[in-house]
Amino acid sequence: MAETDPSRIAGAALGALALAAGGAALYSWIHARRVTSEMHPPIGRFVEVDGVRLHYVERGPLDAPPILFVHGNGACLEDLLVSGLVDACATRYRCIVPDRPGYGHSTRPSGRSYTPQDQAVLLSRFLDTIGVERPLVVGHSWGALASLAMALDPRADVAGAVLMSGYYYPQERGDVALMGLPAAPVIGPALRWTLGVQTMRRMAPKLYPRLFHPRPIPERMLRDYPFAYAERPEQMRAASAELAAMSASAEDLAEDYASCAVPVALLHGSQDAAIDGSLHTGRLAAEIEGASVAFLPGLGHMIHYFAHDDIVAAIDSVASRAEGRAPDEGRPRRAAE
């Protein structure tokens, strides 16, 4: 009986592994192209800013006071549209909603930094490009940190900020090491292009209930939100890199919080299982002079799906403070669904 050659077995195993990895990568590439071209084609316009091709939509009157909406980590502009918040504001505000770099249909060229501070500059230049001046900025979760960076930067020239469910201070989080792996050198691309699609499909059923807890996931999100975006390798890279850099970015920005010179309103779900409101929103409210704060009972991280009245009231208040007048209590407001 012939002896088994270990080197031939190892070679065959490596060849089979390489073939499987190549097949998985090809599937990921085809799937990513299908997601953005067939399943969820662009719904807005494009503009190039500093080499980034940004996709965005607008709602509301062009001559109304402008609002820039900034979505969170792992999300896209459809999150803010599907939530109904943009429609609730568009009756009397010009609502501008971009996909941040690497999300939805916006590109994220490699070899550059995308910290909240960097994206604040990029979004400011985006507004300049489309001819928008002195907007209110409304951010959710990671987008709240980028929005706060805009509020702190005089060059951004924002009128005020409404920050929802935000992360503002360095905090040890057990999920960062694992969730940041897809952005790591060498191993990151291998993970994204081979295991990414199936990993995201397994994670989603656990992730989204935690974000919406204690409420159920709204039917309109299950029906209309483009969940498949998160299965694309490039969006995995963006989300992982931002999560990995979040703590250091917050530490850098925190030095300037007390110097914020524009009106700020803070909102946070009292039962947020993703970000502790007392450690972040409560602490920030104590640092920014004149900031209003509301902890919304019975809500978790995704307050923009349920608290339209509270959020629009905060937007109205910040807009009024930016104009140097008291809020107009008599203005009608669209109720949350």
Rank of each mutant, 00 (worst) to 15 (best):
S7I: 05
A18D: 06
L19S: 07
A20S: 13
G22S: 11
H31K: 12
H31G: 11
H31I: 00
R33F: 04
V35M: 11
E38F: 14
M39G: 04
H40F: 15
V49Q: 12
D50Q: 15
L54Q: 10
H55G: 10
R59H: 14
E78A: 12
L81D: 05
S83Y: 05
G84Q: 06
D87E: 13
R92E: 06
P98F: 08
Y103V: 02
Y103L: 12
H105V: 02
S110C: 02
Y114N: 03
D118P: 14
L127P: 03
D128F: 00
H140M: 02
A146G: 04
S147C: 02
L148T: 00
R155H: 12
V158N: 00
L163H: 09
G166P: 09
G174F: 03
V176S: 08
A177N: 05
P182L: 02
G196H: 11
A204T: 13
F227Y: 11
A230D: 06
R232I: 02
M246H: 11
S249K: 04
A250V: 11
E251R: 15
L253Q: 08
H268V: 00
A273H: 10
D276R: 12
R283N: 10
R283I: 03
A286I: 02
I288L: 10
M302L: 10
A307I: 06
E323S: 15
G324M: 01
A326N: 09
A326Q: 12
P327H: 03
G330T: 11
R331K: 13
E337A: 15
